[in-house]
């Protein structure tokens, strides 16, 4: 390493630069946080949506599925599953199909990835559907490219 860069200078650049970039990052994140809080005004997080999210966490759905492309890659993307089931046109039909789908697992079809059976009450199933309806309304910059996820 060249002689022009002294160790003390290198150290100062490191600490100074790190603080600088962290501050810039913090400002941008603060802006995005404001934005995210505003989302909740038009797309309210009702107690039922929040409860649905807790079920999502409690049963580790994300350890098979992706949501907004994050999680595991063993099962379909669910951020937009509400739309995939036609929830924007026929909300009642979509709700029934989604609940029925979850109740019918596992399929035990040979060679096909399996989803376990979860002991969920009707109310919990409604909550999880409410949560998936909420996620489908988040502006994800047009991701995924196709409704299939």
């Amino acid at each position: 390493m060249s002689e022009t860069l002294t160790k003390a200078a290198a150290r100062n650049i490191f600490y100074g630069g790190t603080v600088f970039f962290f501050v810039v990052f913090g400002v941008l994140v603060a802006d995005s946080v404001t934005d995210a809080i505003a989302i909740a005004k038009v797309n309210p997080i009702t107690p039922s949506v929040a409860a649905g999210k807790r079920i999502w966490e409690r049963h580790a759905c994300f350890d098979c599925h992706t949501l907004f492309g994050e999680g595991a890659r063993f099962a379909p993307e669910l951020g937009n599953v509400w739309l995939r089931y036609g929830g924007d046109k026929d909300p009642d039909g979509a709700r029934e199909s989604l609940k029925q789908w979850i109740k019918n697992q596992p399929t035990r079809v040979e060679g096909r990835h399996q989803m376990p059976h979860f002991d969920l009450t009707e109310q919990q199933l409604d909550q999880i559907v409410d949560y998936l309806r909420w996620t489908s309304r988040v502006n994800t910059q047009n991701w995924p490219p196709h409704i299939s996820g």
């Binding site: 970039f21 941008l28 994050e70 988040v138």
Partner: peptide
């Protein structure tokens, strides 16, 4: 750190941000 901190942005593309 100069690249990695703001590089976090590569996870903020499609999550509602």
């Amino acid at each position: 750190l100069f690249t990695g901190i703001l590089g976090t942005g590569h996870h903020y593309y499609w999550i509602g941000t």
